[in-house]
Design a protein around this nucleic acid. Structure first.
Length: 255
DNA sequence: ATGGTGGCGCGGCCA
């Protein structure tokens, strides 16, 4: 059995106690984190090692940042997409045994038509090329993280209001669709075709209390794993914690 | 109500 999780922690400095407590409770084999907002020299590696996790990380001050905690030793670390010069730390690919794991913090995009939106689409096209190559090399591939794209209207609390906006726009969804068509399956949606499965709720306007959420945090698996998927769920209880991240962890169980 | 909350870090950006 292989338990894998993704969680946008929105500052590892603030969330470290919650993350360590969560790891101890859920005992995933792998946790992919996003928005660590911490430079590598300040990454709290020893805190993870003390509870039995190896870590890899690619961070920067203030913004972005990705990290992986794994019970297995971490090999073949890559932190950049080929074909794009990008100081923003959003990618962390590692090999655990014979499993390739790619942790992503996809650009938010700000608003449709903005410079950041164009960057998001450009970044995603480079991602798709990278994953295509990775799939040829690794049969056992998992791509997970904060995609900042709600795949379909079912994944959005009020699709009418959001129509055409960033996070749900056609071009973003098309880019995600092209990623899936390379040979990946959206784990949550494969197992549950009806429940929204929100993983993010805006801090503002009582978003969580009113369940105004979106499913932005995805676990995509190659066909080798899709046949062995047992469970995929959102740990909504963690979003209810004192001083929570605006994202809840998503957990998949394989085999 | 063109807002709101939270993180970073101390003014204003980013989500």
């Amino acid at each position: 059995m292989f338990k894998i999780a993704t969680w946008n922690v929105n500052s590892l400095k603030v969330r470290l106690p919650q993350v360590l407590e969560w790891l101890a409770a859920f005992q995933p084999d792998v946790l992919a984190m996003q928005e660590t907002k911490i430079p590598n020299e300040l990454f709290p590696a020893m805190d993870f090692e003390a509870i039995g996790y190896h870590v890899a990380y690619s961070g920067q001050k203030t913004f972005n940042g990705v990290a992986i905690a794994s019970k297995q030793t971490i090999k073949e670390v890559e932190t950049d997409l080929p074909g794009i010069e990008d100081p923003q730390r959003r990618v962390l690919a590692v090999t655990l045994g014979d499993v390739r794991v790619i942790d992503l913090y996809v650009p938010n995009g700000q608003s449709v038509g903005s410079e950041k939106y164009d960057y998001k689409l450009h970044w995603f096209s480079k991602l798709n090329h990278y994953v295509k190559v990775q799939l040829k090399k690794y049969e056992k591939l998992i791509v997970l993280g904060d995609f900042n794209i709600a795949p379909a209207d079912l994944d959005v609390y009020d699709p009418k209001t959001w129509e055409g906006h960033v996070l749900v726009s056609d071009k973003e969804r098309q880019a995600l669709k092209e990623l899936l068509q390379l040979g990946l399956t959206d784990a949550y949606r494969q197992l549950d075709t009806e429940s929204p499965g929100y993983s993010w709720w805006d801090y503002r306007m009582g978003g969580f209390r009113r369940n105004l959420g979106m499913r932005l945090d995805l676990i995509l698996v190659s066909s080798f794993f899709s046949k062995k998927l047992m469970r995929c769920q959102v740990d909504k209880a963690t979003r209810e914690a004192e001083r929570p991240s605006d994202h809840a962890p998503v957990i998949a169980v394989i085999e």
